[in-house]
Amino acid sequence: MVRLRPRADVSLLLTCLALYVASAAQIRAVRGSALTTGLFALWSPVPKLAASVVEVWDNWVVGRHDLDTTLERYAALRLEVARLREANQVLASDVLALRQGSALLAGFPSLVDRSTVARVITRDVLVSHTMRLDRGRLDGIRLDSPVLGEHGVLGRVDQLADRSCRVQLLSHPSAAAAARLVDLAGEGLLLGGDRPNITGLPPYLEVPVGALVLTTGSEGIYPPGLLLGETGEARTEGLFTVVPVRLAARPTEALVVLVLAPESAGAR
């Protein structure tokens, strides 16, 4: 048996020749030769697979990039929303305060010249019955200055600092104001506390429920004619008629108040 062992250079030459013929067959065949068809059938899955891998990789990279970008954007937007919400709250508070201040000034036109508008910083209407304002001695506030809310008298200044002051509310147990009832003669003393009432009125006085209670100014702190509240059901205790009063001003709703110049000349 003859064993064919061609030399390497001859093999190379023959292979190149075979490739030339194969190339000719591929180029001449309009629809493709059997060789190209076979090679294509064998080879086509490889580029497809490679293309799929590249596509998957590409999608993964792009998706990852998009995800990172989206997450960054989301975090930034959340911060922005938080900032805007905070600003919105501040603005809403300011608008409310401005409205209250505007209503206050419109409600007491005769007092505008001798009053200062102040914002409420803190308030405790249940325990200490006080509120703190953002105006103080340097703003012209004096001790015993009357403080008005939108609906009536709130109290008086009882502590003073350079840039703030404390207001003793009418609901404070030691608060008092000279008061009178509309359409009724006589003057009494409005005493504070959890249940404010007017005392010092003559006994067996017929007091209608819901009558307006106004300041008289005799105690030297509050100007006369300011609304203190409305009467409840009166009763006689000893020598006086005691009239429960529902205070008109609501400290819990007050954001802006009007601080008047004190009535007494000796105010510090």
Partner: peptide, 16 residues
């Protein structure tokens, strides 16, 4: 030739 979708052969001859 295979990877670039060309006729298989000329590239082989050229490569050799």
């Amino acid at each position: 030739d295979l990877l670039t979708d060309q006729a298989v052969g000329p590239g082989g001859i050229g490569g050799a």
